[in-house]
Design a protein around this nucleic acid. Structure first.
Lengths: 236, 236
DNA sequence: CAACTTTGGAGAGCGGTGCTCTCGCTTGAG
DNA sequence: CTCAAGCGAGAGCACCGCTCTCCAAAGTTG
């Protein structure tokens, strides 16, 4: 899609990309709050007002970075999942979990941008939800594959869902994994929030007094969560 | 401790408190990034430079608010735990979890301040760790009580810890709950990160497409995590 | 080819920010 | 009573996001 017709369009696309790249660079240095349009423009040899031809506001630049980050994380996770034999559902689960962590530790400020607190006055536009759901869809897809393969074990301690929660789970299943039992979907969601909660704790310094470095704790919890959703232990 | 001797000292303590209160008020309106020293000073009828007599920088004000927030959350959680019969460990666990959520939903910006992404250049001073560990200590205390009462069930699917993780768990146990088996402590940590991960997802809008409102999902996950750490189901 | 429109960079400027410094007034201690 | 410490006011610096106007270059049209 780089065959933008006119030279002007190609230049615009290129500069837009350069702005995002430079902004990402600054993000890595000083975080979302430290991202300054003026500094980005300065670094690019232009004046700050010119930047507004490309992004109508600082928040729009941030939104573009957020979508890019969601997509980058989603893509590496999808690739990690794709790199494991389809039947080895537990291996896929663990590979995906570790891909998420590796990406997050590699670009902590971008992780912070998407999974940290929303920046001050910023309100996430709906454009982000498609990109944001890629990781959840990978994990749910693994569980779905295990379910359709019949290898998913239903742990004994699972309670029946309360009516409201069952309804929410049904609606969610209908949109995402129609055949998946609602309890399993909720378990996957519980596991998902554990994974990201653990990661946020690690990256935001909440774990420093306890299990730090957190590699092994992360690995152990990812296994526990695989148990929680009922993934079988080993490739057949 | 209000018996500050001189009038000047009392005035200083009062004004310090008023500054924090006004800052908290602004926090509730616009979040951490929107907190402006000048606005706080303006609202208090003083000039911005005068505020620096009380807090040497914006970050110091934020730190004070962070410690207050940790303590407020810690206190309400401790009270929730204390309100349940000591032997009803599952009831205490659930009450504590719901107290955390209730507090967080009541003051979302203060929750964001402490469990969201650290604000840009901000580095958490060590003063905060004591306040920050109150909630973890409540939850671990519940598990410890269950363990010493002998009512803690060891789930079958618990794997032995890897050497490094076992070492970390031992060190942590020594500091926090010496008699607690390391596996149990790690399970509690996994559960803790699930709770806060789920809460952050809810408050930061990551759950809007799925289980929203999240009351029942939160309740169900809190139960699952109680299972995970091995808390017995009901008062004896 | 010439006239016209669109695009985009430059510059000045507005109101805001955190923070520093100096200048006095007030308070408390010796 | 004296004198140092405490503290508020004000001006000022460098930065920020954002808006507006001006003008040159690029593309479009007759």
């Amino acid at each position: 899609m780089n065959a933008g017709r006119t030279a002007r369009e190609r230049a615009r696309a290129e500069l837009t990309q350069e702005i995002k790249d430079e902004a990402r660079r600054q993000l890595a240095l000083s975080g979302a709050g430290g991202l300054s349009l003026r500094a980005v423009a300065r670094e690019l040899g232009m004046v700050s007002s010119a930047l507004y031809r490309y992004f109508p506001s600082r928040d729009d630049l941030l939104t573009a970075l957020i979508i890019d980050a969601y997509n980058a994380l989603g893509e590496t996770t999808e690739q990690a999942d794709a790199g494991v034999a389809r039947l080895d559902v537990r291996g896929r689960w663990l590979a995906s979990c570790h891909a998420v962590r590796a990406w997050a530790k590699g670009q902590p400020h971008e992780y912070t941008l998407i999974y940290g607190s929303p920046v001050p006055g910023y309100q996430a536009p709906t454009d982000t939800v498609a990109a944001a759901s890629r990781v959840p869809l990978v994990l749910i897809g693994i569980v779905r594959d295990a379910d359709t393969a019949g290898t998913l074990s239903a742990p004994a301690d699972v309670r029946p869902l309360t009516p409201v929660l069952a309804e929410q789970a049904d609606a969610l299943a209908a949109a995402v994994a129609p055949e998946l039992p609602p309890q399993v979907l909720i378990s996957a969601l519980t596991a998902l929030t554990q994974i990201f909660g653990m990661l946020s704790f690690e990256l935001f310094g909440q774990l420093v007094g306890s299990v730090d470095p957190s590699d092994e704790f992360y690995a152990a919890s990812a296994e526990r969560m695989a148990d929680l959703v009922g993934l079988p232990v080993s490739p057949p």
